[in-house]
Amino acid sequence: MSRKPLLRVRKTGALLVAGVIAFVGTVPLAGASRPLAWVLVVPAAVIVWAWRAGTDVREDDLRVKALVGSTRVPWSSIVELAPDERGRISALLDNGNAIRLTGVTRDNLPRVLAVAGKSPAPEEEVSTPPDPQD
């Protein structure tokens, strides 16, 4: 039996709303002709993905969920959590692989670490260069 996660991090709810709107919009098209019924699959997949995809945080591991399947990542195998240029967080594992943590961003990373009982590394102070227009 699976334990309940301490925190569930998901993508924005706007994706779910967009999927529902797209599904409703394709119903008339799919109803017009039987060969076009397959177009309902695309918005249905978006709805399922928006509902399911995300990262579940537990004390001893993370579970990264996708449209189909999930990956369990123990905290002990995570070497580093690093943001990319868009603010999305990836976990660098001790085997050299990296896995993107769905739904986890630079903004909610401190909450993820706090809930898991992990303390973030102290941030280095970055000096900003003087403005050349001054």
Rank of each mutant, 00 (worst) to 15 (best):
L40E: 03
T71M: 13
E124G: 12
D94H: 06
P74N: 12
G103S: 08
L40Q: 01
G117V: 11
A121Q: 09
D131M: 13
L62D: 04
G117S: 11
A50M: 04
D84C: 14
I78V: 15
A121T: 14
W75M: 05
P83M: 06
D56A: 15
P122R: 07
E124N: 10
W51Q: 05
L62G: 06
A91Y: 02
P74I: 13
T105S: 15
G117K: 07
V57F: 05
G96H: 00
K65V: 13
P74G: 11
W38M: 08
A98C: 06
G103C: 07
S76A: 14
V126S: 12
S90H: 13
S127I: 10
A66H: 09
V64G: 03
R72P: 02
L92M: 09
T71I: 14
A82F: 07
L101I: 01
N97R: 10
L93R: 02
E123R: 15
A116T: 07
A114Q: 12
A50I: 01
E59G: 06
V104W: 00
V73D: 05
W38R: 06
V48M: 02
V41H: 09
S90F: 09
S119Q: 11
I89A: 04
L81E: 01
L93V: 02
K118I: 08
A53G: 06
V68R: 09
V73R: 03
P122D: 10
A53Q: 05
A114Y: 02
V46Q: 01
N97V: 00
W51Y: 13
A91L: 06
